[in-house]
Nucleic acid binder design. Structure first.
Lengths: 210, 210
DNA sequence: TGGCTTGAGTGATTACTATCACAGAAGGAC
DNA sequence: GTCCTTCTGTGATAGTAATCACTCAAGCCA
């Protein structure tokens, strides 16, 4: 359960009154590691501000494949769930709790109301969009121009940055995130291990290279 | 040279005073078809609102390859050039005039000033982000999950939607936009022609399918 | 008209990735 | 320990796209 001090640390530079309203009208919601927060095709009724844990955003296709787009960490908010004040669109992507997660869920009417009342809020919203937009651009870059070995390297580095040198992921999970196949990932990681970049364990790997 | 009426038509629902300020402080800039409006790596000093013509946004890699991301048409604005009020970032992408283009260029200080003064302006900015964000998500979807034949079909349809049934593009240009090669595009388009979807001319093609 | 440039068509080859088919290893359950 | 499930490693094969090497066609222009 977040208090005002936590909010101030995670989401700095908002107006005083806004912190109070966030606490008053936001709903604290917890998700266990592995659970689905937002599913493709479902309507979005609130904005998520991440308080604790890591949320994985994926782009889904019609066959149920999930393509990793980016992580949200504490202090970040979901851009997808900010679009809906202008319509009642459905989610194109899905969000999943990777670790245990606590979010502050802001009902859309407040989301919109505060846009008019708090300058810091609309800066926050715009900043959120900007960050997620840049993340997406980088993703486009990688899948448009890079081969699987480079994409895997970028991907693993993102995981290491998020979870530390020892990352718990199976080859199958990595393959899903990159829309590839387990065998391909297995081979490429074996090569990285031979080069001394990583060491491979069951269900996890360790990043060795500086 | 746009007048207030034109602006009102292209960018509806802004406040009265804002139209006047747009005309007063925005700079009208024209670009000939084919010229480069914004280049990767250059700092962004203003926001572009498209008045006339079509602007192509591309994501560039380090080797100079350009990957088509989306079109901007009259009444739209460039999300990329809206990020900079929070820093002095450089462009990750490039913008090119496809037809003769007229844009209203808004210096960043006004861009930011109006965010505080005009509610309609920050809605406009957020709406712009939202649209471009969704465009990007669709792009990710296509390159992550689709084969070249499907991506080509999507691509050609986007061109047709933008320029009408008869589109002037060489196979080489299409290949560049999709980060593919001329021969591949040539073969796939030949197949589409055999299926009666298009007819191929020198420097152009025609969309036949309903 | 003939040369020249640019764009398009097509076969052959190569590279990368996906898929199939297993074998073997690790670890939990009993 | 033994069984069983899950994860990983690896060869063989197939499919898609990129690259190479040409030929041919269209249109300019002198």
């Amino acid at each position: 359960m977040p208090d005002e001090l936590t909010l101030r640390k995670l989401f700095p530079n908002l107006e005083d009154g806004l912190y109070e309203e966030l606490l008053q009208y936001g709903n604290v919601r917890s998700f266990a590691a592995g659970s689905v927060i937002l599913k493709k095709g479902h309507p979005i009724r609130s904005t998520m501000m991440v308080i604790e844990g890591v949320v994985k955003l994926s782009q889904d296709d019609d066959e149920g494949d999930e393509f990793f787009v980016y992580h949200l960490e504490p202090g970040q908010a979901c851009a997808l769930s900010m679009v809906c004040n202008f319509g009642h669109e459905k989610s194109e992507a899905s969000a999943k709790a990777i670790t245990d997660v606590v979010v502050l869920s802001i009902p859309l009417q407040y989301m919109e109301k505060w846009l008019g009342e708090y300058k810091s809020w609309h800066y926050f919203v715009i900043k959120t969009y900007r960050s997620r937009y840049n993340d997406l651009l980088q993703t486009v870059n990688e899948i448009a121009f890079r081969n699987m070995d480079e994409r895997l390297e970028f991907y693993l580095l993102k995981q290491v940055k998020q979870f530390g040198n020892h990352v718990k992921l199976t080859h199958q999970e990595i393959a899903n995130d990159l829309n590839s196949s387990r065998e391909v990932i297995s081979r490429l990681m074996k090569k990285m291990e031979k080069n001394g970049w990583i060491s491979i364990h069951r269900n996890s790997f360790e990043w060795l290279r500086k």
